[in-house]
């Protein structure tokens, strides 16, 4: 699904990722854990196609090097980034945004676009599963949403767009226990042999609900250790200090 090879990312003189390598197979769930400032969010932005970084190396997604492709093209190809801090856009209403996004992706895939009636039925069905009220769908995008509502909204978009690769950037931050469970259930419902996940988190608690196949420890822009889901539990006990010392 995804193969990152010798990826270097910098902003000005500052190197953020250096010779970074990662392979994610079809249907696999990978978690990247690491301390603040280790480059996890930058990695997610670069995978999604954000401007403003100097990028070198290869990002092979479904057998195509996507470096240089703009964010919209990557999303249309099936990459989805659930933002750590979802952006508030005043005046852009949820329903209009979701329908525009869904149809843009469908159009790119050569699928039939949905009309208003089909869209409303689809979105309500997905929203209900995530405990999102109809009233929220009539509001401006993320404006006045609580932290939990924003994160649920990210999962709603993910379930509508049905991506091949979903990157979750600290989706657990700002969620209470009940909301975390709802979000995790939403993610688990999307797990399939054809869909891969890259979950970025500081804490093990999200991984109690979404069991990863692989856990990677990322420090200072590189993966320093890879293991199975047990590694996350170990990290919860020992923290990241040991890995930082080693570097």
């Amino acid at each position: 699904m995804l193969s990152i090879e010798k990826l270097n990312i910098s902003v000005g003189d500052k190197k953020i990722l250096e010779d970074f390598n990662l392979k994610i197979g079809k249907g696999e769930v990978h978690a990247i854990m690491g301390p603040n400032g280790s480059g996890k969010s930058t990695l997610s932005y670069v995978l999604a196609g954000k401007d403003g970084y100097e990028v070198d190396g290869k990002i092979i997604f479904k057998n195509e090097n996507i470096i240089g492709l703009p964010a919209d093209a990557r999303a249309q190809k099936g990459i989805f980034l659930a933002f750590q801090y979802p952006i508030e856009i005043p005046g852009v209403f949820m329903n209009n945004f979701l329908k525009t996004s869904l149809n843009a992706v469908k159009k790119a895939k050569g699928q039939k676009e949905v009309d208003v009636v089909e869209f409303l039925s689809l979105v309500k069905q997905h929203a209900k599963k995530l405990g999102i009220k109809d009233e929220q769908l009539g509001r401006a995008l993320n404006v006045g949403f609580s932290g939990g509502e924003k994160k649920r909204n990210e999962v709603l978009q993910m379930s509508l767009l049905e991506p091949d690769l979903a990157i979750l950037d600290e989706t657990d931050s700002g969620l209470d226990i009940d909301a975390l469970k709802i979000v995790a259930d939403g993610v688990n419902a999307l797990r399939s042999p054809n869909r891969s996940f890259l979950i970025i988190t500081h804490y093990q608690r999200l991984l109690d609900y979404i069991k990863p196949d692989f856990v990677h420890v990322m420090v200072n822009g590189s993966i320093v250790k890879t293991g199975c889901s047990k590694l996350a539990q170990e990290l919860d006990k020992i923290g990241y200090k040991e890995f930082q010392k080693a570097i």
Binding site: P70, A75, T100
Partner: peptide, 18 residues
């Protein structure tokens, strides 16, 4: 804002218009 909309597959021109 532009990146957020584009990251949802909305082409740049349409995203700016939104």
């Amino acid at each position: 804002e532009l990146f957020y909309l584009m990251a949802r597959g909305i082409p740049e021109k349409q995203a700016k218009r939104l």
